[in-house]
Computed example of a mutant assay.
Amino acid sequence: MSKSIVVGSVLAVLGLGGMAFGAWQVQESRQPQFADITGVEPLTRTVETPREVCENVVVQRQAPTRDPHSVVGTAAGAIVGGLLGNQVGGGSGKKIATVAGAIGGGLAGREVQQRVEAGQTVSTTEQRCHTVTDSHQETTGYEVSWRYDGQSHTSRLDQRPQGETVRVVNGEPQWGEPRSQS
């Protein structure tokens, strides 16, 4: 056989083998690539909501007085004091004792009336309101850890990823596409 036929045949075989290898590589690179999802952590924030709470409360208040100047107590005390003072002494001393008894009795009667009225109370029901704050945790997204081509990565997503893998195109995860391997 001629040397050129042998060399041509060898080159043809090598060329066909190279094309077949190249086609296999292209087909292999067209196969879907997937990354493993290694962790999913919810991202949360605290939401506080104020609301008003009202309740009825029984309240004790001082009863209103019918005699704000304590005239009745003063008059009654003056009469009793004057009568008692009149029982003491004789002559002009009796008059002084009567006047002193009336003055002292009036002061004492006014004080007694004020103390009695201060102890008198009235119960009423009042509505009292105050603001309380309710709080709860709200999920705002997810921090997703994934491993591809021997390296670890992290992405933040609005939705929790489904499954245990994610499709990767040109090194980027495709979170919105189906992740199942066929």
Score class of each variant (00 low, 15 high):
residue 132 V to I: 12
residue 21 F to S: 12
residue 80 V to T: 11
residue 144 V to C: 01
residue 160 R to N: 02
residue 166 V to H: 07
residue 4 S to G: 03
residue 149 D to E: 15
residue 4 S to L: 13
residue 101 G to H: 09
residue 172 E to N: 12
residue 97 A to H: 03
residue 40 V to K: 12
residue 121 T to P: 09
residue 92 S to C: 05
residue 75 A to R: 07
residue 106 G to Y: 06
residue 164 E to C: 01
residue 19 M to Y: 15
residue 98 T to K: 02
residue 135 S to V: 00
residue 26 V to C: 00
residue 62 Q to K: 02
residue 156 R to P: 02
residue 46 T to L: 13
residue 172 E to V: 13
residue 10 V to R: 09
residue 53 V to H: 04
residue 106 G to S: 09
residue 22 G to V: 00
residue 149 D to Y: 04
residue 50 P to W: 05
residue 181 Q to V: 10
residue 105 G to N: 09
residue 130 H to S: 14
residue 136 H to K: 05
residue 31 Q to A: 14
residue 82 G to R: 02
residue 32 P to K: 13
residue 164 E to V: 13
residue 93 G to Y: 03
residue 49 T to E: 14
residue 167 R to D: 00
residue 76 A to W: 00
residue 24 W to C: 04
residue 127 Q to H: 05
residue 15 G to C: 14
residue 81 G to T: 10
residue 55 E to N: 11
residue 126 E to I: 07
residue 67 D to P: 01
residue 67 D to M: 00
residue 15 G to A: 15
residue 98 T to G: 06
residue 138 E to L: 05
residue 42 P to A: 15
residue 167 R to T: 08
residue 115 R to S: 11
residue 121 T to A: 06
residue 148 Y to K: 10
residue 12 A to M: 11
residue 9 S to R: 06
residue 74 T to E: 10
residue 86 N to L: 14
residue 158 D to Q: 11
residue 74 T to C: 11
residue 153 H to K: 09
residue 144 V to E: 03
residue 20 A to P: 04
residue 92 S to L: 08
residue 117 E to S: 06
residue 35 A to D: 01
residue 176 G to E: 12
residue 164 E to G: 01
residue 152 S to A: 14
residue 97 A to S: 14
residue 150 G to A: 09
residue 5 I to S: 12
residue 108 A to G: 03
residue 106 G to D: 08
residue 31 Q to M: 12
residue 78 A to Q: 04
residue 84 L to Y: 08
residue 74 T to K: 12
residue 157 L to T: 01
residue 147 R to A: 11
residue 39 G to T: 03
residue 117 E to C: 01
residue 52 E to D: 01
residue 123 S to V: 06
residue 1 M to S: 10
residue 181 Q to H: 07
residue 163 G to E: 09
residue 85 G to H: 10
residue 181 Q to M: 10
residue 74 T to W: 14
residue 84 L to N: 03
residue 29 S to I: 06
residue 134 D to T: 13
residue 79 I to K: 02
residue 62 Q to D: 01
residue 85 G to P: 11
residue 54 C to L: 07
residue 78 A to V: 05
residue 164 E to D: 14
residue 104 G to V: 03
residue 5 I to V: 09
residue 166 V to G: 01
residue 130 H to T: 10
residue 117 E to V: 06
residue 43 L to C: 02
residue 145 S to C: 02
residue 51 R to Y: 15
residue 76 A to C: 05
residue 74 T to I: 07
residue 10 V to Q: 10
residue 5 I to Y: 12
